[in-house]
Design a protein around this nucleic acid. Structure first.
Lengths: 186, 186
DNA sequence: AAATATACTTACTAATAAGTAAGTTTGCAA
DNA sequence: TTGCAAACTTACTTATTAGTAAGTATATTT
């Protein structure tokens, strides 16, 4: 795999998560990487193409993380904790998550990109639902809602909190994330 | 006040909430209203200007709603229920809320627009925190978290759920909103 | 050594964007 | 009736955008 290609994907993701999809251009990437505009088109013929590839990369990354936690034998509490760390890291880096960044733009994104965005959203929600279900069965979590509803509550809290935290300074992000976990304690 | 001006604001808000700030243009508005591009510039010299005015309109609307509920003597439960109805309505109309729409774009918005966006976010969070605090004091709500944390949990859930609901069809939005309320029941 | 594929650059096109300056119509006031 | 302000339109500029076609240097294969 090409290093340039990887750098484009990495920088493109950063730009989506800081500026937003419709606010970044191929120029932003090319000038940063010291290459020409057309070089990006060489790897990603269209912006839609790049957007889709970036979401696909995120899907792969999430799948690898979930796989990794499973194979290492993390219990459900530990898995959820690790998942939430993705968001505290994003918060530290002043970035939003890919779903929260692209979500508001679905009416101006291509079909392919939206399809991948749906895939990752469903994937995460499914994983979270499954984790909550088995965690509750094992007596690790306590909650009254349907697992799917609870998963959606947690996920949407995390997604939007990254946005709100950038708008309201006085938010203590760590205690916010802690509250999500503590709410599940037996 | 001019009718055209009001129509521009209304349509502009719709466009922000469906396509996103950086995806809509003055052309989208002018063609829809049957006027020329420059007519919009007559009322709003710059796009930044229009954006800021739209957020200001939202602030006014929220303040009027809060005022109205107070003067009508709604109890805290009823107030929260009414507040959540804003989101079920948005969901029905396939729109996101203004905070969730503009939030991801703060790095490509003007200072003035960001300032107003901060104002409305803080306003809503403050109102929600106060409502939760007095509601719990009166024995209408039950929750263990700090009111501000709980307010942020609820608000971020609502904001992002509008995005996620557009991505994942199988979400039952009403039961999701219900879960938020039920979670607070004594 | 010749041919070919990779990884680009140069140089451009066409479309669309925000924004502006100057002119026009319409209603109202002096 | 003239003057003036409000509410636009016409016609334009400038900047930026995604995207492309054709060329070039370098490395690799045949």
């Amino acid at each position: 795999m090409s290093i340039t290609r990887e750098k484009i994907i990495e920088l493109g993701e950063d730009l989506i998560r800081t500026k937003g999809y419709n606010a970044f251009s191929y120029q932003d990437i090319s000038s940063e990487l010291g290459i020409k505009n057309a070089a990006i088109h060489y790897y990603f013929p269209s912006k839609e193409n790049l957007g889709t590839s970036i979401v696909k990369t995120n899907i792969q990354r999430f799948e690898e993380m979930a796989e990794n936690m499973k194979s290492r034998g993390f219990d459900e509490w530990h898995q959820l904790e690790t998942f939430i760390k993705i968001y505290t890291k994003s918060h530290r880096e002043q970035k939003r998550c890919i779903v929260g960044s692209l979500g508001p733009d679905i009416n101006s994104l291509s079909e392919n990109t939206v399809a991948e965005l749906r895939r990752i959203s469903e994937l995460i929600l499914k994983w979270l639902t499954a984790t909550l279900t088995s965690g509750r069965e094992k007596g690790l979590f306590a909650f009254n809602e349907e697992p799917q509803i609870k998963a959606l509550l947690i996920l949407s809290s995390l997604v939007a909190s990254l946005q709100l935290a950038r708008l309201i300074d006085k938010i203590e992000y760590k205690s916010f994330c802690n509250a999500i976990l503590e709410d599940l304690r037996m």
